[in-house]
């Protein structure tokens, strides 16, 4: 009980809950569009944004070198997502788009980090997550961004389903398809920068996709997949963070390992049950 009164643990759990529930919402749309790995591409671009933020921070002589890192990541991620969306809507194959972004992001990230002279410790925080350093400022930013994702992602679910499921039909119904595509791209970018704090760039995509994959084993309905994935994501992040309170391990990797383990267990149980029914 007393642990829950620790401000740091409170902060970690609040951010974890929000990110864990919000990430699968956008993950569902990405999987629906068969762009499950988009998060990886954008994540690497966001890393370049972190480095650009460091450079800018050094240039402006800011007291705290990290001050512009997250704004830089958000900016770069959104630009990356918009570029991906543009290329995709012009008919470039999704995997090619992703590869270009992925390599472009990581190469320019490494280059910029070198120029900015970022320390290894700093870099590791973004690669693997740094939830144990969250401040109340981070919490409020996460609350705001997660609320944005949840309100738009859930509020426009019907329209976003139509657009990600069958773009051509959506256009024939008069839906503002281009605007809705942009909403998906930008919200995916926002999700990635928020989730980066918890699990890091390298695993950001996992937090969006793994809960969806688990939910898919349990239901065949789109809306139920989304709701179930939100619950699974929240439980996974909370469990992972709670365990790291007692054990000194990386929360990001623990959360993803828990998710993958849950996937394996659920997959085994469901196929066993199917076998029994047969």
């Amino acid at each position: 009980m007393s642990l829950l009164q620790e401000p740091l643990i409170q902060r970690m759990l609040i951010v974890g809950l929000l990110v864990g529930a919000a990430a699968p919402v956008m993950g569902t749309y990405l999987v629906q569009r068969r762009m499950a790995l988009l998060g990886d591409g954008i994540g690497h671009v966001a890393l370049a944004g972190v480095a650009a933020g460091w450079l800018a921070g050094a240039a402006f002589d800011l007291a705290k070198q990290d001050a512009l890192a997250i704004p830089g990541a958000v900016l770069f991620a959104i630009i990356g997502a918009v570029v991906i969306e543009r290329m995709r809507s012009r008919g470039t194959a999704a995997d090619i788009v992703m590869a270009i972004l992925f390599y472009g992001g990581i190469a320019s990230g490494v280059l910029l980090i070198g120029l900015a002279g970022g320390s290894n410790a700093n870099l590791l925080g973004y690669l693997f997550g740094s939830i144990s350093t969250v401040t109340w400022g981070d919490v409020w930013m996460s609350v705001g961004l997660a609320a944005l994702i949840l309100v738009i992602g859930l509020g426009l679910r019907a329209a976003l389903f139509s657009v990600t499921h069958d773009q051509e039909f959506a256009r024939s119904t008069g839906l503002p398809v281009d605007a809705l595509n942009m909403v998906v791209a930008v919200l995916a970018a926002v999700t990635i920068t928020v989730a980066m704090r918890v699990v890091g760039v390298l695993l950001v995509s996992a937090l969006m996709i793994v809960p969806v994959a688990i939910a898919q084993l349990l239901t065949r309905s789109f809306s139920r997949t989304m709701h179930l994935a939100m619950g699974i994501g929240a439980v996974l992040t909370l469990t992972g963070i709670w365990i790291t309170v007692f054990q000194d391990i990386q929360p990001g990797s623990l959360i993803v390992v828990l998710g993958v383990a849950l996937y394996v267990v659920v997959a085994a149980v469901t196929s066993l049950l199917k076998g029994v029914r047969r």
Partner: peptide, 19 residues
């Protein structure tokens, strides 16, 4: 079909959107 499974009812209901 898309990447996430959806029920026939959900697909048909999406016809009620837009203009």
């Amino acid at each position: 079909a898309g990447g996430v499974s959806a029920t026939a009812l959900e697909v048909v209901t999406s016809g009620l959107l837009g203009s």
